[in-house]
Design a protein around this nucleic acid. Sequence first.
DNA 1: ATTTGATATTAACAGTGTTAAGCTAACAGA
DNA 2: TCTGTTAGCTTAACACTGTTAATATCAAAT
Lengths: 202, 202
Amino acid sequence: MGVTEKRAKHKEAFRREILDSAREIFINDGYDGFSMRKLAEKIDYSPTTIYLYFRNKDDLLFAICEEFFAHFLAELNRIRSVSPDPVETLHQAFFYFINFGLKNPDQYKLIFFTKSVYGTREELFEKESMARNTYFVFKEIVQDCISAGKLREIEVDVIVDTLTVVSHGVVAKNIYCANFLKERSDRVAHTLIDVLWRGLQK
Amino acid sequence: MGVTEKRAKHKEAFRREILDSAREIFINDGYDGFSMRKLAEKIDYSPTTIYLYFRNKDDLLFAICEEFFAHFLAELNRIRSVSPDPVETLHQAFFYFINFGLKNPDQYKLIFFTKSVYGTREELFEKESMARNTYFVFKEIVQDCISAGKLREIEVDVIVDTLTVVSHGVVAKNIYCANFLKERSDRVAHTLIDVLWRGLQK
DNA sequence: ATTTGATATTAACAGTGTTAAGCTAACAGA
DNA sequence: TCTGTTAGCTTAACACTGTTAATATCAAAT
């Protein structure tokens, strides 16, 4: 292995180390609680060193979000391959997102409620990203249900939005009304899914 | 009118002026975009003067939130007095919140998605506030529907949470997925209410 | 041995929330 | 009228923030 290769590898490893430390701080302390100086101290380098590996604070956040969406995408594909029934697949996929949010509110908040990391709808669709891929796979799952005649004839995009809206809602409530859904968030989530399903079915 | 009274009145007027300017900045620039120095410049006083009228930045936000909730409460009571049918009242009340959020995303975000202004569920219930009053009136509206036998037999608190969850969801999606619901937010909101209603009815 | 280039650092700028101390002007009582 | 007090406001400062420019370090290549 050549020297330049070795260096490139070390650089990559260092980038990873920065990213992992950054994610920890972002999740624990939130977007505002995160600071470049805090991260620098954690990794034992000067604050400006970070700028050699990431453009700025938001670039760090973007990289972290992409890794999360890669994770979501993998899970959606797993569910899809395991469960052959489209309705069952949608149920599981939908519950996966809500459950992730309820179990990891800080992560969910960071990814979805911090900044418009991926810009407008158009900007999200324009350039390739894990977030974009995740969106399309989820849309396909919904489309499969429609194609199987299991849902009311509502535009697929409207249904997708409706579902993500509800997921965001459960988690937002859980995050911003401190302890509001405590001991009850699961019940509210299940009630909501139950109600939604009754309302969406043909 | 005595001198002390006059002074008190002036003080009150000044407080109002600060609050109005603060709300403008909070809404336009968001919680983070707001700064004491910005506000000071706007009202043409030094930053520290503000601290003679408000404990700190969050105290300003709290005062602004309370005024909003006073507004909500008045509107809920108005709807209630106008529409005698409990189901119609709930529909209107629910749509009022969603609509407020879609029409005034910055305000909604400031009030509901910025900080846990009113603390935990317990803390909200403990001390009297406009937010607390608003919550209870909305709960009463839901309870009226249940009492009239118009809803499935689900615990009233769960239904209230479910509805606020959906309201938060629509608005959150609208805010954080920039332009995501654009031109479609109304349709998604109506679809959601329609779906929810089908699912909630007996 | 010298040059080059990558990597890391120090110093600085402009901004943040908040506090402590001090100034000014108007009032009250003698 | 002089003095003491107090309300109202300001200046200065502290400890932070993200980010940039200039500089130092040090290993590899010539």
